[in-house]
């Protein structure tokens, strides 16, 4: 039985002046230092002893981490230190990335979202992360500063397991870029949780879709699932069916069933694997149906 500390254990707070300095420090203290963004996960893990770092390296405010900007060509770039509410409140985000805004609004509480960051959510790689699905479906690419300079990490290949990613000691995630979604896109995030808001996802289903004349169905559907696999899960087989077959109730049901069969949830204190699988099917069906209705209304 874990008995968490009453407050944070003794730890040093470091505020480097540059990315190079931060990266060097992190690399030199592998396993005992970590980049510090919003802290909403970090504090909890430090209190309960799951993380035993000695140093928190505050990278908020370093080059490119504090800004969020929208460019009609390049899309949305969210600095690593930018709190979720700031992103959600941007008119451009509500207009062009409504699925992200919708997912953000289901995370914890308003006051926590003033600290929690999208990039932090991604770096911690919780399979339950609410915003990760949206970021993946929008084709998100993470910009990372490391020993060898700056590199790009597409989210589709970024996650390796619960809490495990391609990040190495010394790496600092700088920002996330989401390209402008295709014209006519519609999204939906449905979360099954214990409370109506604020809880962790038992199951989270993100769907993004848009017209695509090159496909037999005329539409591209993208699906991401939270909390039902060791990593945030895409469901290509279901997406394929939705690309190839005429979209109707039966096709949607088939895709939902594939989503259910593709996931590998576990039993935990929040829900059983059995319930999770069933909810993946039901909520994928619900999300696809709602998205499909909006697409056809728009058409």
């Amino acid at each position: 039985m874990q008995n968490p500390h009453p407050g944070l254990p003794e730890i040093e707070y470091i505020k480097p002046a540059s990315l190079e300095e931060a990266s060097k420090f992190l690399a030199a203290h592998a396993g005992e230092a970590r980049p510090f963004l919003g802290g909403t996960d970090t504090f909890v893990r430090l209190r309960d002893g799951a993380w035993k770092d000695k140093y928190l390296v505050d990278v908020k405010g370093l080059d490119g981490t504090a800004q969020v900007s929208f460019d009609p060509e390049k899309g949305l770039t969210i600095g690593a230190g930018v709190a979720m509410n700031r992103v959600e409140a941007m008119p451009e985000v509500r207009e062009h990335y409504p699925l992200l805004a919708e997912a953000i609004r289901t995370v914890a509480s308003y006051q926590l979202r003033n600290r929690a960051t999208i990039v932090g959510n991604i770096c911690n790689a919780s399979p339950a992360g609410d915003t990760i699905g949206a970021c993946m479906l929008y084709g998100g690419v993470l910009k990372v500063f490391g020993a060898d300079g700056v590199r790009e990490e597409p989210l589709d290949t970024f996650f390796k397991g619960p809490g495990k990613t391609n990040l190495k000691p010394g790496d600092i995630a700088l920002s996330l870029t989401l390209p402008l979604p295709p014209r006519g896109h519609v999204g939906r995030y449905i979360k099954v949780a214990r409370n109506k808001l604020g809880d962790l996802a038992i199951v989270g289903v993100s769907v993004l879709a848009y017209p695509d004349a090159t496909l037999a169905s005329g539409y591209r559907f993208l699906i991401a699932l939270a909390s039902v696999a060791p990593v945030p899960l895409r469901v290509p087989a279901a997406e394929k069916v939705l690309a190839e077959k005429t979209i109707d109730e039966a096709t949607i049901a088939e895709a939902a069933q594939i989503a259910m069969d593709s996931c590998s949830p576990i039993d935990d204190v929040r829900g059983s694997a059995q319930y999770r699988k069933l909810m993946v099917r039901n909520m994928t069906r619900r999300a696809l149906t709602e998205v499909w209705q909006k697409l056809t209304q728009a058409a």
């Binding site: 909890v44 006051q111 926590l112 600290r115």
Partner: peptide, 20 residues
């Protein structure tokens, strides 16, 4: 741990859990 909200204060005009 940022769950109950009893410690909520305004930081630069926005509410935060001051324990976080």
């Amino acid at each position: 741990s940022g769950e109950c909200g009893a410690c909520t204060v305004m930081l630069n005009g926005e509410p935060v859990n001051s324990c976080m």
